[in-house]
Design a binder for these strands. Structure first.
Length: 652
RNA sequence: GGUCCGAUAGCUCAGUCGGUAGAGCAAAUGGCUUUUAACCAUUGGGUCGAAGGUUCGAGUCCUUCUCGGAUCACCA
């Protein structure tokens, strides 16, 4: 095995070498450069982190007072000395504090004194160090094993504090003891009396103005990106740290809501012998001792429903699912899902409950507001619309309502001409660049205006749909259809439409979903429950009591993204068995994402499962909405990246 | 998988028509005892993502590859 040298991991350059030299000099000066602890004072009642200190009411009062004073001054004018000194006298009565943190910049030295900010990761406080009145703490020369319980370490000696200070680099950790005061500009600071070295940053800090700019490096070295959050002086939107704090708030808000509503949190297998409960390709692994293949779960659904059989009437799990599929801005191979089930509830009750829960969690994560700005859109979590899939379709392609004298797309789909239109639309849209020739764009222009062209295709999908009327009864020529493309190319499209038309049954079955995805989904910006899904694509869902072809199922769309999926759970073991059998035959037919039969689940249902409703909520996507992030990788701390390939050096 | 864009000093970025590799920050040295992205002076720092090609000459043009981003396709 090729074990890399330390120097290959931390490559030596003028930056790292300077820091390494400082570290050696510090070792000479203070002994142990990686001491085991630093005890912070408890002036605030809690441990005095920088954040606690800044939020402590007595300190805050003084800071507010000086701010108020400064606000009465002209731009750039300094606080009046008597105001400042009065407040400083007050601060002196608090006595000394001991705080610790990371140096956010290289120290600003001015001859025999210096300023630098310390960060606890969240907040910063300025410290002031003077050559004449700073003492350094020796960490002692002890190494492992030298200190024993019977002979505690002696009180550390003092070293020259200024010598110690001069060996610090931006990013180092130190602990300081000193008193609070206000500077000439009114900034709260600590006048340091003793200084202890705690840990070295061998690598330079990210740029203090720009942080880490490259999204690749942000994600690959998330720790450095998080450090940048605490250094950066200016930034647009939320810092990376704030994104993940908001994520945590949303999650804890949901947990709290469910706990308060009597739900119990459980953990079901992440590795299971059957990857089922959703339609997706799994990750596969192998257990040596058991000598069986295992799959990373694609959904916890079937395990959680087994628990409703077992008597957990309200149960939830909030954890990762794994799907071995392509990556996109909305898809990550592992993603966090909240799934919960409630006995004796149906789909309508679940929508009510989920809506209330999401509202509450959003409020908690979004500073008490239900409105978030996402890109160009403003999303209002205050009201969730409910509309059936068919109604949503009929609303956007309303001309067909008149033609067929019915607002039920299922009626339209009975018509062979309509089926052919769908085929034509699907085919022509995938060959959409052809359609742009209609507007007279040349190949070069298309290439040059690529993004504009793609937007045009998207925005003209309705016009394209109108044109497909021609296909209802025959296959028009390119000229008849208004496409300015060579006949030979046109013929290819028509041939494909014809070939597919041989199986119009397939269109009849999937046409509804196609129309929905094509014409409705991306325009569902405000929170909308789409209800009444076709039963055929909902193998775990109960049918509607009034319509056997409709599943009692909903999906929640926000900003065109599917954010949740729920239904009245199918609890008839025999029907569930038959649905699984249908799925398995679809699998045989080549659909390797069709659901896998779970025999033990059928057995569990046979013990009797109460009527219940369930839901899965995509947490990452909700976090994206709340943080105005457009890539799921920006709301996941350590998204998967391809490893960096080191180029082999040929000579030694 | 297709298409387009990007990769230059430790970091953030310039680099024109193919003609000696640039700035700010950071680093090193010196000065400065209340600064605010502190300031002033001096110095060092580069396999221009990798490999090949065209050329008298390539950061720049061409080909292939690597990584990333965007987008389409696939996919809940």
């Amino acid at each position: 095995m090729n074990i890399p040298e330390f120097d290959e991991i931390i490559e030596p350059n003028d930056q790292t070498e300077a820091r390494a030299h400082h570290l050696e000099a510090l070792r000479e000066l203070v002994g142990n450069v990686y001491p085991n602890k630093f005890e912070r004072s408890k002036f605030t009642g809690e441990e005095d982190t920088i954040t606690n200190l800044l939020h402590f009411s007595a300190v805050k009062q003084v800071v507010d007072e000086i701010k108020r004073h400064i606000s009465t001054l002209n731009e750039g004018e300094r606080p009046h000395p008597e105001e400042k000194e009065a407040l400083n006298a007050e601060l002196r009565t608090f006595g000394n504090v001991r705080v610790s943190g990371r140096l956010t910049t290289t120290p600003r030295t001015m001859g025999k004194a210096a300023f630098v900010h310390l960060s606890d990761g969240k907040n910063r406080i300025q410290i002031y160090v003077r050559k004449d009145d700073v003492k350094g703490i020796s960490n002692g020369g002890q190494r492992e094993g030298e200190a024993t319980p019977n002979s505690p370490l002696p009180t550390p000696d003092f070293v020259d504090g200024w010598d110690l200070f001069k060996l610090l680099d931006g990013g180092d950790f130190i602990g300081v003891e000193g008193y609070l005061f206000l500077t000439n500009t009114g900034e709260l600071s600590i006048h340091v009396e003793t200084l202890q070295f705690l840990s070295k940053s061998l690598l330079p800090m990210p740029d203090k103005m720009h942080g880490i700019a490259d999204p690749e490096l942000q994600r690959r070295y998330r720790y450095a990106d998080l450090i940048a959050s605490s250094l950066q002086v200016e930034h647009e939107g939320l810092t990376t740290r704030e994104v993940f704090e908001r994520r945590a708030k949303l999650i804890s808000g949901m947990r709290r809501y469910l706990d308060d509503a009597g739900y119990i949190e459980v953990e079901t297998p992440m590795l299971s012998p059957k990857a089922t409960g959703a339609a997706a390709r799994p990750f596969e692994t192998y257990h040596n001792a058991l000598d069986i293949p295992l799959y990373a779960r694609i959904a916890p659904e079937l395990y959680l429903k087994r628990l409703t059989v077992g008597g957990f009437e309200k149960v939830y799990e909030l954890n990762r699912n794994f799907r071995n599929e392509g990556l996109s801005q909305k898809h990550n191979p592992e993603f966090t899902m909240l799934e919960f089930y409630c006995a004796y509830m149906d789909v309508n009750g679940m929508m009510d409950f989920a809506e209330a829960m999401i509202k509450e969690a959003v409020m908690k994560a979004n500073n008490g507001s239900l409105v978030v700005k996402y890109g160009e859109n403003e999303i209002d979590f205050g009201k969730f619309e409910r509309i059936s899939m068919k109604e949503a379709i009929a609303k956007v392609i309303s001309k067909d309502v008149e033609k067929y004298n019915s607002s039920d797309p299922d009626v339209w789909l009975e018509d062979e001409g309509f089926q052919r239109r769908i085929l034509a639309h699907r085919e022509l849209k995938t060959r959409a660049f052809n359609s742009l020739h209609v507007s007279g764009w040349s190949d070069e222009e298309l290439e040059k205006n690529r993004i504009a062209a793609e937007n045009k295709i998207e925005s003209e999908k309705f016009e394209l749909w109108e044109k497909t009327k021609l296909f209802e009864h025959s296959m028009p020529t390119a000229e008849e259809a208004g496409f300015r493309v060579p006949d030979s190319i046109w013929q290819i499209s028509v041939d494909r439409i014809m070939r597919r038309a041989e199986n119009l049954q397939e269109v009849k079955e999937n046409g509804l979903v196609y129309l929905f995805e094509e014409f409705v989904e991306s325009d569902l910006i405000q929170p909308t429950f789409i209800i009444d899904y076709p039963k055929s694509i909902s193998p775990l869902s109960k049918a509607s009591p009034t319509n056997p072809n409709i599943a009692e199922r909903f999906e929640l769309f926000i900003n065109g993204m599917e954010c949740a999926n729920g239904f009245s759970e199918l609890n008839d073991p025999r029907e569930q068995y038959e649905r699984f059998v249908d799925q398995m035959s679809a699998r045989e037919g080549g659909d390797d994402e069709a659901m896998v039969l779970d025999e033990d689940y059928i057995r569990a249902l046979a013990y009797g499962m109460p009527p219940a409703a369930g839901i899965g909520i995509g947490i990452d996507r909700l976090v994206m909405l709340l943080t105005n992030k457009h890539s799921i990788r920006d709301v996941i701390l350590f998204p998967h990246m391809k490893p960096i390939v080191k180029v082999e050096q040929t000579e030694e």
